[in-house]
Design a protein around this nucleic acid. Sequence first.
RNA 1: UGCCCCAUGGUGUAAUGGCAACACAUCUGAUUUUGGUUCAGGUAUUCAAGGUUCGAGUCCUUGUGGGGCAACCA
Length: 555
Amino acid sequence: MEEAKERSLHFIEQIIEEDLKSGKHASIITRFPPEPNGFLHIGHAKSICLNFGLAQKYGGVTNLRFDDTNPTKEDTVYVNSILEDVKWLGFEWEGEPRFTSDYFDILYNFAVKLIQKGLAYVDDQSAEEIASQKGTPTEPGKESPFRNRTVEENLELFGDMKSGKYREGEKVLRAKIDMAHSNMHMRDPLLYRIKHAAHHRTGNDWCIYPMYDFAHGQSDSIEEITHSLCTLEFEVHRPLYNWLIEHLEIYPSRQIEFARLNLNYTIMSKRKLLSLVEQKAVDGWDDPRMPTISGLRRRGYTPESIRNFSERVGIAKRNNVIDVGFLEFSVREHLNRIAPRVMAVLNPLRLVISNYDEGKVEMLETINNPEDESMGSRELPFSRELWIEQDDFMKEAPGKKYFRLAPGCSVRLKSAYIITCDGFDEDENGNVTTVYASYHADSKSGSDTSGIKAKGTIHWVSCQHAFDAEVRLYDRLFNDENPDGHKDREFMEFLNPDSLSIVQNCKLEPGLASAKPGDGFQFQRLGYFSVDNKYSLPGKPVFNRTVTLKDGWKK
RNA sequence: UGCCCCAUGGUGUAAUGGCAACACAUCUGAUUUUGGUUCAGGUAUUCAAGGUUCGAGUCCUUGUGGGGCAACCA
């Protein structure tokens, strides 16, 4: 089978194809370089799919590298979550996971080399002094009084920094470039700082740590990464990235920037996500309302749906905001194909079929997935008293376009009989307590000879067979399209107070009692639901609503 | 007010000097034992001005608008 039409190449693919064609590279190596200081989110998923996807497409490999140069923020719990998320998305990195901290010795020697070439110096000034000399984007900076130390002195001082002779902040190593450069990052950027902090992997071996600019590109180079893909904000770092590679005379990896993914009605900053977790606004990094990969997983998203989404949003350099509805489309599309259909009543209302024998139970066959015959069918118990959805009954039909139940109206009970509503009971507050109906015995699903036409079909669960469960319904975490985009208001102010509603005693068809964490279903007419991996107990699953069904009903 | 990046329907992304298209969203209609799915169709797009060219969304100039850059963060 041929694909209808080949998708056109995005700009990074074009660069790669040119490099392959010209012989610049025989094959490609990409990398995914997270800092282990938080959980990965959907924006990282885009980057993961890009980097690993490119390597797959062009027969190359992808390294997973933890950019762990700041011991005060990083932790192995994050390393482990990242490992899990990348694997879950379906990707395999080349060899063992790598760590920038594995390269600390090499990086130190790179720094020594730069000093020897007269291109780096030790500065004794404080952070404030250095900042004040940096200039502004429109004014040049001033040179440090320590800028012209001799190579010997710099070598000795840098050695002393390494051996722990100084306190934090007392000295830094800087590149000697140009304090008047129009690019702020070229104004003698910091290369190393002193931190007397234990590192999650190297412990107390080091008390100096390289800065991002002196670690990332060098690590790319050490691994001979051919195409180093990052987001737009690093564009201004590229001249420095190239300068260091050139003067260190090491493998020339190429940095290419693309626009990061933004989603409306959420935030994507790791720092802000962390504060949601710390302030307990959510139930951890993997809360199903979080845009994290682990949150989406717990919510019931599939790796395939996230990969499709990442593919479809495209790669370009233009700032973008993707509608969260597009993500939902991707998961519905996949779940529609694979999720077994089941009966579940979230807000139960008792329905009594007056003309059905008391005590009688019929087993009715129902198909598991109309989209996939191979998924077969199962049997559902039917009896005189059923649970139906409160929303499926009204005391009075509002109009001709109403297809559900009301006195005098008929509906099809999915996979069972057509019923006609005869009346209802209500309490003193006007709340309906029981609905009464008669069934048409000759309208049985599959052998209907009644000739009755029911406009609507509703779902149901037999009262005596129903299984009670907790179901969690989610709405967007923020009420505002861009919670993080207001000058004088904090993103927390836009938290949606109704983003989680826990519904107890939902009535589910009996087979669902054995559902396992991670299992996904379509609750017919309601949406897709997945068994929670945190609160479910054996035989007592808790269901998370992944996403509602598309609602095409216009009143 | 310096440097860098960007500008195509409501949202994304294509068109690589030659008929502005695809997906989502939206609207019609058909089918349907899920108001789901599926199918058919509709609405809607090149920031502005000038230039180059037989021909410009695409190249050039200027302007406008948006974003980024002054952490011992990454």
